[in-house]
Design a protein around this nucleic acid. Structure first.
Length: 943
RNA sequence: GCCGGGAUGGCGGAAUUGGUAGACGCACGGGACUCAAAAUCCCGCGCCCCCAAAGGCGUGCGAGUUCGACUCUCGCUCCCGGCACCA
């Protein structure tokens, strides 16, 4: 054993030992509890960043802890390898995305291995490999067969200069990131997964996940957004000769149930095959409502749910009459309706715009608006009257119809009723455009101010007022009013109660070259034809280099041209690829059977799944985690797995943040600079070190490639070693907290492990024979005190590790070493106490700092391998004390403390406390009202 | 804008879930060792008053409940994450 702690030497040796022993190779071992511990796999962006180190250290701590607690553990690792950054890098460097990605994987794998993680690398997978993504394609076709995949148009960001679709991230202040051109909305055909069919299941099953953080479950529940309300219609008549266009299908439309087997259909109803040029052209599509056909989105008895109602089915109704459908959760305010507002894409808006150039211009302006919901929600609320009016279904009064830029076509019916007196947004809209405001809920019963028409604050939006100015509904509360109104609407055939979901179906089509090819072939005669299973996988060419204009796959004749599997005639392959969330929605299943070349999953999935502990960033609280839950349920219903939920326990790691610095060019293009390149000035400004010119501070944010504010942990690992980096990472903050990166304090971690090494070296110098104190051995007072402290700290540490609070586990390890170092005297009893203390300490530390624990455990002859050791448990006998200390308060303020016998009763304690001089001074003769005794803690004298 | 979360010394954080606020560290100050420095070790360290003792104030801001509030309730401010094509 060396006298000096040399992390690099011992870490290399420990890692070689684990490698030789195959220490982390996991095999199915019935009879032992299994523990599948999974950290979210990384995107191979180039280098590890601190968020990765945090994530994988947390996962490793849990993995190693549960192994020592007796579990058969599996901790796998892989690569979320498809995605946009590879295409961006390809454009910048002229290197194919595949090469860039594989190089990054090789480098980052080395980095991960240098951390000493207990990973079973034999199960490594990368989603960009055909043997992985073929199962994306295979399952896509199974879902198509079940009707869980369907086609409809969707809105994308269009860069008119580069003639290409942009990701939301590539749109900056409404402009394309490369061209600076104003981004346009464009509708293109896309494939959707019907996640809304699982809305009820996804919501209800949240209750079956006690191992998930409440905040994540709340976010998911709100995202799914089940709202109970009333769907009803305003009848209207248009001038003769009017002809309403078809509406967009609503995004929550349902498909009929499929065949119920695992076979995809021979073809799906579709528009004729489309080439990329046609997608970019102006005569893009026939109206989508018709092309999906009768089995399509309008399916069956729910056909009238489409926005615009009968307007979408002209053959069944004279075109002049129609119903304007809306959904509301506040049917109790229906008598206060003074206008209706429809989305720009609504058929009534289109109808009204025909004869009104100004309105047509406004509708066009709305359609050009932002795509992202966050932008939509913050734009100025604008509207314009259509000149049309509809009839109030209960009062028969005429209600004007407006076009509103805040009404979303994709949610509900694409139209809303306007009740300015009891909805804040409607109120501002009415004030702005001079629409009447009719007060119909009296809020005074609920303690709110009286109604006025001047200030929103004195109005009432709550559900606990009663109806006024509402005719026969006067005096009813919320629930009675909704019931009565829904019943009356139903009697007239103009509405009923209904559930509305906020959740929308999942559009998976991407116009990009670095993703899973969608396994469909477009045939002029047969339509969209699924690729037969025998032809899977549809292999992605790995030598494509995008140039920023359109999808390079579409430019490759060798990829696009094929023959129709049905009729054998020449056909075109689909060139869209799948959303990368598809890849990450099931990878946790594949780790159980990564080598199976003939099936997506096998019986080993039944052994390992569900994942017992999933660990990843809180930023994935909704999308990734919801898609994975959906995918699991879909596979369950296809008979492929017997799982309701994929992840039993979830730990959502807090984000690692860092400063953001950038410069904005005149074109609007933003360049980000890494904080290491920045010099902060005394006046608070910042300059780029290389040119001395100012940069703008963009606050702090998540470490990311796109903001260029990541910190490479390699320097830290190279300088200090993995154990110190891991210890510091765990010590500096609790796992779930947001962490603003700073390496201040890493020296403390380094000092601690050096101190531990020196202590162990001194201890080992004087002999190595095991000599923990025998049970029942009487120890001198000081030694008993040290032992009590060690076991007391261990007790708390075990509580903390059980609740994933690893920072206090690390500080517990520090406290134990402090106590051992302070242990007075010498002789065999002292040595026995130190021996026991060290054995506890090395085991407690081993999940956090596995290398030093491994080495010292062997060197001091505690055993062959600390991995095989039992987890330490405190000795209850060591914790017993004869006297305990109680805090003494007078009127809730601390005035001292007293020592009392462990078994003193309240009366005895009161007497001791009242005799205390500090208490007498503060009581100073005033009458004592009462004395509160909290056993084992404190005594409060109230005067 | 909507949904979720956060705020405690100069800094990271702790407080056994209503019971001693500041554990454990970092930084800083003083001392020991040293020719000197580094490393290491010892002491101090919320703010005010102050030789000290005693005391007063103190957990983002403003109210409230309680013998007692970092913890519970109501109302704010600021920051972080998500908002469906970043992953």
């Amino acid at each position: 054993m060396q006298q000096k702690y040399n992390p690099h030497v011992i870490e290399r040796e420990a890692q070689q030992h684990w490698e030789r022993a195959g220490a982390f190779r996991a095999t199915e071992a019935p009879g032992k509890p299994k523990y599948y511990c999974l950290s979210m796999f990384p995107y191979p962006s180039g280098k590890l960043h601190m968020g990765h180190v945090r994530n994988y250290t947390i996962g490793d701590v849990l993995t190693r802890y549960h192994r020592m607690k007796g579990c058969n553990v599996l901790q796998p690792m892989g690569w979320d390898a498809f995605g946009l950054p590879a295409e961006n890098a390809a454009m910048a460097n002229g290197v194919p995305p595949a090469k860039w990605t594989y190089d990054n994987i090789a480098y980052m794998k080395k980095q991960l291995q240098s951390l000493g993680l207990a990973i079973d690398w034999s199960r490594e997978l990368a989603t960009c490999r055909p043997d992985y993504y073929r199962w994306n394609q295979w399952l896509f076709l199974r879902m198509l067969g079940k009707g869980l995949v369907y086609k409809k148009t969707g809105v994308v960001n269009w860069d008119p200069v580069d003639q290409t679709v942009l990701a939301n991230e590539q749109v900056i202040d409404g402009r394309g990131w490369r061209t600076g051109a104003t981004v346009q909305k464009r509708e293109i055909p896309m494939y959707y997964m019907a996640i809304t069919r699982y809305a009820d299941d996804l919501l209800a099953a949240l209750d079956s996940l006690p191992g998930w953080p409440q905040r994540v479950k709340t976010m998911q529940a709100n995202w799914i957004g089940k709202s109970f309300g009333v769907r009803f219609a305003f009848p209207y008549e248009l001038p003769a000769g009017s002809n309403l266009p078809s509406p967009q299908p609503p995004s929550h439309a349902l498909l009929p149930e499929g065949e119920g087997n695992l076979e995809p259909p021979l073809s799906i109803p579709s528009s004729p095959p489309f080439s990329q040029e046609e997608k970019g052209g102006s005569s893009l599509l026939s109206p989508p409502g018709r092309e999906v056909g009768s089995e399509g989105w309008r399916g069956g008895g729910e056909g009238s749910r489409g926005a615009g109602g009968e307007g979408g089915a002209p053959e069944a109704q004279t075109p002049e009459k129609g119903l304007l459908w809306v959904f509301t959760t506040r049917a109790d305010t229906i008598m206060g309706v003074t206008f209706c507002a429809v989305a720009a894409e609504h058929p009534l808006a289109a109808q009204a715009a025909k004869g009104d150039a100004k309105l047509a211009a406004f509708v066009e302006e709305c359609k050009r608006g932002p795509v992202m919901e966050a932008d939509l929600a913050t734009i100025e609320k604008k509207g314009m009257p259509t000149g049309l009016s509809v009839t109030h279904p209960l009062t028969g009064k005429a209600v004007p119809v407006w076009v509103g830029n805040y009404v979303l076509m994709g949610y509900g019916e694409g139209a809303v009723m306007g009740v300015p007196a009891h909805d804040e947004r409607d109120f501002h809209f009415a004030k702005k455009y001079g629409l009447p405001i009719e007060h119909v809920i009296d809020a005074r019963t609920a303690g709110a101010d009286a109604f006025t028409t001047d200030h929103w604050q004195s109005w009432y939006e709550g559900k606990d007022g009663i109806c006024v100015n509402s005719g026969k509904y006067d005096g009813l509360g919320y629930h009675e009013a909704v019931d009565a109104i829904a019943a009356d609407l139903k009697a007239k055939g103009l509405g009923d109660k209904q559930v509305l979901w906020r959740l929308r179906d999942w559009g998976i089509s991407r116009q990009r070259c670095w993703g899973t090819p969608i396994p469909l072939i477009h045939c002029g005669g047969c339509g969209d034809v699924p690729v037969p299973d025998r032809d899977l996988p549809v292999v992605l060419p790995e030598d494509c280099v995008p140039d920023g204009t359109g999808n390079p796959l579409a430019k490759r004749a060798d990829f696009v041209n094929c023959t129709c599997p049905r009729c054998g005639k020449p056909a075109k392959r689909e060139t869209d690829t799948m959303d990368t969330f598809v890849d990450s929605s099931w990878y946790y299943l594949r780790y159980a059977c990564p080598d199976n070349g003939t099936a997506m999953v096998d019986e080993r999935v039944a052994y390992w799944l569900p994942v017992d502990q999933y660990i990843g960033g809180i930023e994935h609280a909704i999308l990734h985690l919801l898609y994975s839950r959906f995918w699991t349920k879909a596979m369950r219903d296809l008979g492929l797995v017997k799982l309701d939920e994929p992840f039993t326990h979830l730990l959502t790691q807090g984000m690692v943040l860092n400063d953001i610095y950038f410069r904005k060019a005149e074109s609007g293009r933003i360049t980000y600079y890494n904080p290491v390149e920045i010099e902060a000035k005394a006046d608070g400004s910042a300059v780029l070190t290389s040119d001395g010119k100012p940069v703008e501070a963009g606050g702090i944010g998540t470490m990311s490639k796109s903001k260029n504010n990541g910190v490479d942990p390699q320097e830290l690992i190279d300088h200090y070693g993995a154990d110190i980096a891991r210890f510091f990472m765990m010590f500096t903050s609790p796992p779930e907290d947001t962490l603003v990166w700073s390496d201040a304090g890493v020296e403390g971690a380094a000092r601690y492990l050096r101190r531990l090494w020196s202590f162990a070296w001194e201890f080992g110098k004087t002999g190595t024979a095991p000599s923990s104190p025998r049970p029942g051995t009487a120890l001198p007072k000081e030694l008993a005190g040290v032992r009590r402290e060690v076991h007391g700290v261990l007790k708390q540490a075990n509580y903390d590790i059980g609740r994933n609070q690893f920072n206090t586990v690390a500080s517990a390890a520090m406290k134990i070493l402090n106590a051992l170092e302070r242990t007075p005297g010498d002789g065999p009893l002292r040595r026995a106490v130190l021996h026991e203390g060290l054995s506890i300490l090395l085991r407690l530390l081993s999940p956090i700092t596995p290398h030093i624990s491994h080495t010292l455990w062997r060197e001091l002859k505690f055993g062959e391998d600390v991995l095989a050791a039992d987890w330490p448990e405190p000795d209850a006998a060591a914790l017993i004390e004869d006297e305990i200390e109680l805090v003494v308060q007078v009127n809730g303020k601390k005035r001292g403390d007293v020592r009392v016998p462990r078994d003193a009763d309240s009366k005895a304690i009161e007497n001791i406390v009242l005799a205390d001089p500090a208490v007498q001074r503060h009581v100073s003769g005033q009458p004592i009202k009462k004395i509160v005794v909290v056993p084992g803690r404190l005594v409060n004298v109230v005067v």
